[in-house]
Simulated scan of single mutants.
Amino acid sequence: MSNSNPSSSWIAQFKPGDRVEISSEDPGFRGSWFAGTVVRRDANNTNRYVVVYDQLYEDETGDRLLQETLDWIHLRPPPPPPEKKVQFKFGDEVEAFYNDGWWEGAITAEHSGGKFVVFLRGSKEHIVFEEEYLRLPVQWVKGKWEPRFEQVQREEEMKFTQGMQVEVTTDEDGFKGAWFAATIIEPSGEDKYLIEYKTLTNDDDTEFLREDIRACNIRPCPPEIIAVDGFKVMDVVEAYYNEGWWVGLIAKVLSNGNYQVYFVEYDEKTTFKQADLRPHQEWLNGKWVVP
């Protein structure tokens, strides 16, 4: 959609040779930014620019870089590097470098070795990235960089109250990818809560286990979604197993309403009844998203 006559008196000014990042309204490319260079200003409309991409080509032969004429609102300077090393964590809004561009998403799991699972909103898929291919999203607003609203608000959205029914996950080996029902007991420090599990007990099974859990590892209980038509191969699901809900993929549809589920984290397959499965949902920026 063109916006060559903006109501604001401020309009981005670019010169030939300026390095820029380019966004697109085309289906399949929304929420992405690609590197390029300004070639010239459009002679017929001073609010439009001819740009050439760094890594996108006009056709599959790769002989000629793609050029486009775009409104100024689709251009911005390359974001500045962070002032200090970013410590990425679960729930962070990020941009991930994928298919030659930076794509909006959110971290949905932390792996060892500085790797993170990112849910890309544009393609609605989970992909593992090393931290060097991630960056925090920022906005170019009237000639200056500002943090994204979602990033500023994330800590406030993740507050939990005493007695709230939640689900929690842990980074401990053998428990990654699982969510366990719990109750918030009280805040236990900066960005931490004391919780009591509803299914896990202490070593002598005399009472329910209590632990201090980081806020980024806590989410509200997901809304119930009934899979009326069942599941199909490659659906992302959560399977109830060993007192918790474990994230996996449907590997095979069996007879009598049974399914074989593949757990990527552990490279294992197990058979479940449909009653023990639920669609996987992600809690991102205060709302539930179904990948």
Results as ranks from 00 to 15, higher is better:
N5I: 12
E155G: 09
L254K: 15
Q67R: 15
I226A: 13
D59I: 08
D204M: 12
D191G: 06
A178H: 05
E68C: 04
G114N: 10
S9W: 07
P279G: 09
K142R: 13
P80L: 11
N242W: 06
D229M: 05
Y133E: 06
E157I: 14
R135H: 06
W140Y: 15
L200I: 14
N45R: 10
I226N: 09
M164A: 09
G174Y: 03
G101D: 09
A251E: 07
F180Y: 12
P6W: 06
V117S: 13
G189P: 02
M164F: 00
E58I: 13
A35S: 14
F97Y: 15
Q55D: 14
P78C: 11
D235S: 10
E93M: 03
G114W: 05
R135N: 03
N256W: 10
A181S: 10
F97E: 12
I195F: 04
N5V: 12
P6G: 15
V51F: 10
R154A: 13
P223A: 07
Q67E: 15
Q281N: 01
E282W: 00
V233Q: 14
F34I: 02
I225W: 02
F97L: 08
P81R: 06
S7H: 13
T69F: 03
A181K: 09
D171Q: 10
G143S: 09
Y240I: 06
K176Q: 15
E125I: 02
Q153N: 13
W103I: 07
E167R: 07
Q139Y: 04
K89C: 10
P220Y: 05
V228F: 10
L75E: 06
N256V: 08
I195A: 01
K124L: 07
E146L: 15
V38D: 08
E104G: 04
S9I: 11
P222T: 09
Y133W: 13
H111M: 11
V51K: 07
V261E: 06
G91Q: 00
F129T: 12
E167H: 07
D171I: 11
S255C: 02
I22L: 04
P187R: 02
W288A: 01
E167W: 04
Q162H: 14
Q139M: 02
P147M: 03
E104M: 08
R135L: 02
D276F: 13
